[in-house]
Every structure is written in structure tokens, then in C-alpha cells.
Amino acid sequence: MLSLDLLAGFTIFLLALIMVVSMVPGLLAGLESSSIDYDAVAYRTGVILVEDPGWPVYPPWESYNEDQKEEIIRMGLAISRDTPNILLSTKVEKFFNRTFFDDDDYRNKAIFGDIPYSYNFSLNISNPDGTYELKQTGSPMPPGYGYIRRVVKIKEPGVAEIDESFKDQYTISDPPGDEGSSTARNFTVRLDFSHLLDPAINPIYQIDPRTEPVNVTITDFGGYLNGTYENATLANVTFWKAGRDFPPVSLPWLSFSEEKPDSYTLYLDGDSHNLTPNTSVNSSISLVLKPAAISLFPLDQNSILDIRFNFDDDPPRTNITGTHLYDYNATNVTHLDLKTAVLEVAIW
């Protein structure tokens, strides 16, 4: 009978098949464990996050706001493509910002899978004081997820903190000379790009205003006030492009009267202001100029950018003056040490 012949033959065939399959490991690899694919996707996502600065690079993707979100192609956290495992803290902050990115953004800009994978990214930063800071996004992990763990270091942008120790250096000598006859006082912070972007400096420790925010903070401003005055008026903050061969030219700014937290923040005594505050200040001035703002200026690798704080009172209430160099001198710009962190990527 056919059925008997066929069944007997088929049984023999099946037995042979099972033997062959069991003798050749890898032939049907993964028939019982689909986690292999997840591991590969997790590895790939880990590489994108840890070894890639993302795209676009200039201006960096993390400086994009809600309207430009679609232009972000890839979310990489590395400082540059030459520095794997060194992440930039502003990229990390943006990446773990759940109000900015949703599930689809993570899938399309970091995981790049054909199917909608579930994910869980977590980053545990160990601070120098021994505390830990956990950042996490994604859903709780079920059993059988694909996994990769990477050890990284996190770079924080430098801060130019101008405190009372610079007082002698940045105060007009008393009695005032020619400058003293004018009521305007200005204080300049200078960024020399050709010095900052010198290729001899290891990119890990480089100050690159094109990718990381420039932070100028004047603390102890009270120490710079004249005599018995309790405050001075900061008229405005302007930006100048200086050259080696030509006098500084004023740079256009889209809007001085509007606060743009994506481009800059200016705090006077702790209150947020725009770039023409005309407000009295007595203790601290803090300006953070973000890469989105730097990218608006017509600057190249040899430019010099001056940030000028203009004070105007009649009679002058402060005698602050001079040029503070934003450079690699540890006295001028404070650099925090790199922080060690662990990044885990889980995909399922």
C-alpha cells in the first residue's frame, strides 16, 4: 500500500534528517533560540551609541529643537568618530530626554531594525564623589532579551569661572586712565578657534565650541563693583569676530530681545534674561552659548570669537575690563575629569 510505503520511507527519512541535523550544529542554529538576532541588534545599537558622534555633526544633532527633529538622522553619543567610548554629556542628556524623543525616534535613529524592536537603554554614571547617576529609557526587560554592555567615559564641557581671584587682572587700575573717561565698561571672553581646535590636542580633551556649549560664569561680581555701589547695569552681550589682521567686526544675531534656550541661556543673579537685559546685577552672570548658536556665526577653524559683556552706568559702577581667554589653561577654564560609566543596551 502506498500509505505504508510512504510512511515507512518518510519515517526513515525523518530519522536520518534528525541525525544529520544533530550532527551538524549550526545548520539550523537558532531554531530554538531567536535571541541570537536580538544580541546582534543590541551589539549594533551599542556600537552606534558608543563609537559614533551621530549625524548631523555640525551643528550636532543634540542641538536640534522640536521643529528640526526630523533632520536628526542618527543618535550617536561619542565626542567624535576618532574617540570611541568617550561620550559627551550634552548628547547623553538629550538622548535620555523622554519628552523630546519617543519610541519611534529611538527605533529609527538608534536601533535601525526592520521590525519594531522593544528596547531598554540604561547608563549608570559614577560621579567622583562616589554617588551614581542612573539614566534609563525603554520598557522593563522580559526574559530572553539581546544584550550588550559597554564601559565608557563621559566628558563634561568646560566652564570659564571668573571669580574674585581675577579681580586685580580684570579691573581698571585706579585712578582710571583714558578708558575711565567713558561711562561704558566692557569685558571680553575670547575663543581662539585655531588654538582650541589644534590637532595636536587629543580630541578627548579638546574644547570644541562647535559641538559643546561654552559656559562663562562670573561669580563674585560684587567684588568688581566700584566703591559703595550695590550693583551695575549689564546693558547687553554682543558677539564679535576678531581676526589676526583686522579689527573685530560685530556679528549679526538673529534676535537679541528674545530668549532662546536652545541657543543660549543668560542668567543674572539666577534670573533668566535675553541678550539685552539692561538689568542691574550684583552677584553672578552666567552665559551658556550652545552649539546651535555658534553654528549661526560665519566662523571657520581660524576665527576668533569674542563674547563681550557691556556695562553702562553713569557714573560707572564697575571697573571690570580686559580679555579672558577661553583656552586650555586650567586657571581660565575649569575642566572636570572624565567620569566612568556603564552603558547597557537590551533589545527584544
Partner: peptide
């Protein structure tokens, strides 16, 4: 292997310039 390479690379990276 990836984890080990990462750890060695990070130990080889000074925390400050």
C-alpha cells in the same frame, strides 16, 4: 571580548589631559 577591550581602553585613558 567587546567588554574587555572597552575596559582596557578606558583604563588607558587618563581622566584629564
Amino acid at each position: 571580548e567587546q567588554l574587555g577591550s572597552d575596559v582596557l581602553a578606558m583604563m588607558d585613558t587618563p581622566d584629564s589631559n
